[in-house]
Design a protein around this nucleic acid. Structure first.
Lengths: 229, 229
DNA sequence: AACAAAAAGCATACCCGGTTCAGATCCGAA
DNA sequence: TTCGGATCTGAACCGGGTATGCTTTTTGTT
C-alpha cells in the first residue's frame, strides 16, 4: 500500500494503446475522410476489438475531438482578486497567442484541423463542445458575481415577489454566451486560415490582432459599429 | 398549365400525412421520451412505412425540431435604410414579445418544449440549428457593411498593406456570433421558465425585460459589469 | 512461488437510425 | 380506359454503439 506515483505497467500500456488507436484513426481519416472509415476498420488496423475501442473512446467523434475544449470556466474561477472575468480571459488568450509554438506538433494539429473541417459530423461535434463549454462558463460567471452561493438562502429574499427568482442569472448566461461565441469564432477563423494554407507564423500574427478586436467588441459593445448606408 | 394555387388532392394528402406523422411522433415522445421511442413505432402508429417517414422528415430529430430556426438573416437584410442591423433585430424581438399570444397553440408548443428539454439528443440538435443560423447571419452582416460586394475592388484600398485581406470579415462573424448567442440564450431562458411551470403571461413579461437587458449588453459592452469582490 | 481478485480484452449477437432497391399502388391527364 | 410518373411499401442492408459471457493478463498477497 505505497503511495508512489506508480507508473504501473498496466496504466502505461493503457495509455499506449489509447494513443495508438487515436493515431491510427487520425491517419485513416486523413487518408479517406471521416465518414468513409468505419470503426471496425479502425479497430482492426489498431489490432483491437471494436468493443475495446469504445471502452477507450465513447464515440467515433471522440477519436478526433478529444481535447478541443479549453477550460474558460477554470480561468475565470482562478483569476486574481480585483480582476474581472473578461480581463482574465483577455489576458489568457493574449498569453496563449504570444506563447512559443516550438513545442507543438504542428503537423498533427494541422491534420486534425483538416479532417475536422472536411466533415460535417465533426463540425457539429465541435459546436456541441462549444455549447458545453458555454454552460460551464455561465456557471463560473454566476459564481463569480455571487461568491458563496446565495442561491440556497431564499428566505432572506422571500419578500421580493417583484423579482421572481431571476432564474439562473440571465446576465451571467448572456455574458457567457457572448464570450464563448467570440472566442470560438476566433478559433474557427484561425483554423480556417491554417486549413486554407496560411503559414503558421502569419496566422498567429493575424490572430493576435483579431483577439484585440474581438475583446474590444465585447467590452465596448457594437454601438460604434456602422451598419450600412 | 394553370398557375392556380392548386389545392391538388395529392398535395393536400401529403400535407395531411406529414402533419399526422409529426403529431403521432410528438405524442409518443411526450408519453415515453424521445430516446425510448423508435422510428419503427412511430411509422407503425402513423400507419406508414419507415421509408415513407424518412421521405417526409430527413431524420428523427426533425420530427420535433422542424421550425425552430427563426430567420435573423432575413430581418437584417430587410431592414429599413439608416437603421443598424442590431437596431432592426432589437425592434423585431420587441415586437415579437409584445405580439398577442392568442392565436398560438400554447399546449402543443409547451409539449414540444418539454420533450426537447428532456432529451440531450434534441438539445444538441437545437444547438446545431443555432450554429446554422449564426452562419447565415454572419453572411447577412457582411453583406450589410459591404452593400454590393466590394470584395472585387481592392484597388481603392490597395495602399493599406497593414490590413491584409481581413479574411471573410472577422468583425461581422464576431458580431453574428455574439448576437445569435444572445438571442438563443433569451429563447432558452424563456423556454426553461415555461418548462419549469411559469405561466405564459408572466414568462412573457420577464422575457420583455430580458430582451432589453441583453441588447443593452450587446450595444454597450461589458465594461460596466462588475466581476466580483 | 503460488494464487485469487481485479482489470482488460475479446467474439458474438443484438438494437436502432438511416439507406437502397425492386416492385406495388395510386393519381391525373390524355 | 389507359398510360406515365409520382408515391408508397416490404425487406434487405449498413454502420455506430451496447450487452453478454468468456479468456487472458496484471497485481497484491500469502
Amino acid at each position: 500500500m505505497l503511495f508512489v506515483v506508480m507508473a504501473g505497467l498496466r496504466e502505461r500500456k493503457k495509455e499506449q494503446t489509447r494513443r495508438r488507436i487515436a493515431e491510427v484513426a487520425l491517419r485513416l481519416f486523413a487518408e479517406r475522410g471521416f465518414d468513409a472509415v468505419t470503426v471496425n476498420e479502425i479497430a482492426e488496423a489498431a489490432g483491437v476489438a471494436k468493443v475495446t475501442l469504445f471502452s477507450y473512446f465513447p464515440s467515433k467523434d471522440c477519436l478526433v475531438l478529444d481535447g478541443v475544449k479549453d477550460d474558460m470556466a477554470r480561468i475565470v474561477a482562478g483569476r486574481g482578486p480585483g480582476v474581472t472575468p473578461l480581463a482574465a480571459l483577455r489576458a489568457h488568450y493574449r498569453a496563449l497567442v504570444a506563447a512559443d509554438t516550438e513545442e507543438l506538433d504542428v503537423e498533427a494539429l494541422m491534420t486534425r484541423v483538416r479532417v475536422i473541417s472536411a466533415s460535417p459530423a465533426l463540425l457539429a461535434g465541435v459546436q456541441q463542445a462549444y455549447a458545453e463549454e458555454r454552460e460551464e462558463l455561465a456557471a463560473a460567471l454566476a459564481a463569480a458575481r455571487d461568491p458563496d452561493g446565495t442561491a440556497q438562502a431564499p428566505e432572506t429574499t422571500a419578500r421580493a415577489p417583484e423579482r421572481p427568482a431571476r432564474c439562473p442569472d440571465l446576465a451571467a448566461r448572456v455574458m457567457a454566451a457572448q464570450i464563448t461565441a467570440t472566442v470560438t469564432t476566433l478559433q474557427e477563423t484561425f483554423f480556417a486560415r491554417l486549413a486554407a494554407g496560411t503559414p503558421l507564423a502569419e496566422a498567429g500574427r493575424a490572430l493576435a490582432e483579431d483577439v484585440e478586436l474581438a475583446f474590444d467588441l465585447l467590452e465596448h459593445g457594437h454601438d460604434t459599429e456602422r451598419g450600412t448606408s
